[in-house]
Simulated assay, not measured.
Amino acid sequence: MALLAEARQWFEQWIGAVAIAVDGAAGRFVRKRNIQLDENADGSFTASIAASKDGRVPAALSLRLDHDSPQPAPPVEWKAAFEGSRIEVRLQSGHVVSRLLDFPSQAADFLDGMVRAQVDRLTPWTAAEAVFGWGSPQPVSNDRIEVAFSATSAAKVDPLLRLARAVGAASIVVSAPAVGSDGAPLQVTLLDRQLRGLAGPQVPRLLRIGLISTGVAAAAALLLNIYLGGSLQSEQEDLQRQISQRRAALRIGANSETGIGLLAKRKQTTPSSVMVLEALSRVLPDTTYVTELRIEGSKVQVVGMTQDAPSLIRLLEQSPQFTRATFFAPTTHAVNEPAERFHVEANITAYFGSGS
């Protein structure tokens, strides 16, 4: 009975996975209805929708969230409009924290990690308690970029997710206002989530029918193969022998200094540039600006501006990712510069670990 229950559970999981794949393929060809949900100053929302093919447009709907349900209850035409739609929520600026972040241009490929590491400093929430996003990086002077960042509390977004599920929407997008580097207003996407499939609730049932039919055909083919001979058994034994040989070869390579073993050793002992950059962003204080970053073997060299250059040596030495921090060039302070120009190098701990 336990084996039968496990087989049934595996079968249900397989059906669900294939249904998700079918939904994804169907989503490329099914055109979803877009409903815009604008937050008002009093916390209510105004829903509007573009004209349908027959030219009919439901009148704008004003609603409030009451225990994750729209109040008042939407009329019949709006219930039909919400079903399977894509809801685009635009939040008011009063519930959003917006910042214009400045990074070196070389950090454009690592924005996800660098922004996520600063969420608790930029907002009243931690990264787990916030829903946040940023716009496209815009180049500015001195080889730097600026990024429009917006965030809000997850407690603000969760009721909207439950509302979208309650009205039968297929997906939801939550965006917030921000200001670009040129001063122009823009919308930053905080959340874009698929709530349910587009292929319909009949997909799992059709898959079951198709799988049963396939199983019957496979059983017939197996019986035919048994009558024709034992070729299947011989092929299986040959395949098992090849698998054993391949496992033995991999085991030998893992224990040697060549092949897979050498690659694994190199991966563990070579510092990751992304992890070095993230570790520096945590160690260096907010008053420090990095203008040059060089990683050569197991050493990192950092050049930039700071208010207190000697304190950087202490901060790097306290970090588990760096050792033997020292100045490789004199610290200078020009008349026309507001801070000290430092040149620091340190050894890198190659393996950062999953907890760093």
Rank of each mutant, 00 (worst) to 15 (best):
A2D: 13
E6Y: 09
W10T: 04
I15L: 04
V22H: 01
L37S: 11
A41W: 03
A41R: 07
S44P: 05
F45V: 02
S48Y: 08
A50K: 13
L63Q: 02
S69Q: 13
P75T: 13
W78T: 04
A80E: 14
L91M: 07
L91W: 09
Q92H: 07
S93R: 15
L100F: 09
P104W: 00
A108M: 09
D109V: 06
L111W: 02
R116I: 05
A117Q: 04
A117W: 06
E129M: 02
V131F: 04
Q138V: 15
V140R: 06
A148N: 04
A151L: 00
A155K: 01
L160H: 10
L163A: 04
R165W: 02
V167P: 05
G168A: 03
S171W: 10
I172G: 10
S181M: 07
T189F: 04
L207N: 01
R208F: 10
I209R: 08
L211G: 00
I212A: 11
A217S: 02
A218F: 07
L224D: 14
I226C: 01
D238V: 01
R241D: 06
R246E: 14
R247W: 09
L250K: 07
N255L: 10
G261W: 09
L262N: 03
L263Q: 03
A264E: 15
A264D: 14
K265Y: 07
R266G: 15
A279C: 09
T288A: 14
E292A: 14
K299L: 12
G304R: 07
Q307I: 12
E317T: 15
S319F: 13
F322D: 13
T323N: 14
T326V: 13
A329L: 08
H333N: 11
N336S: 15
P338R: 06
Y351F: 14
F352C: 11
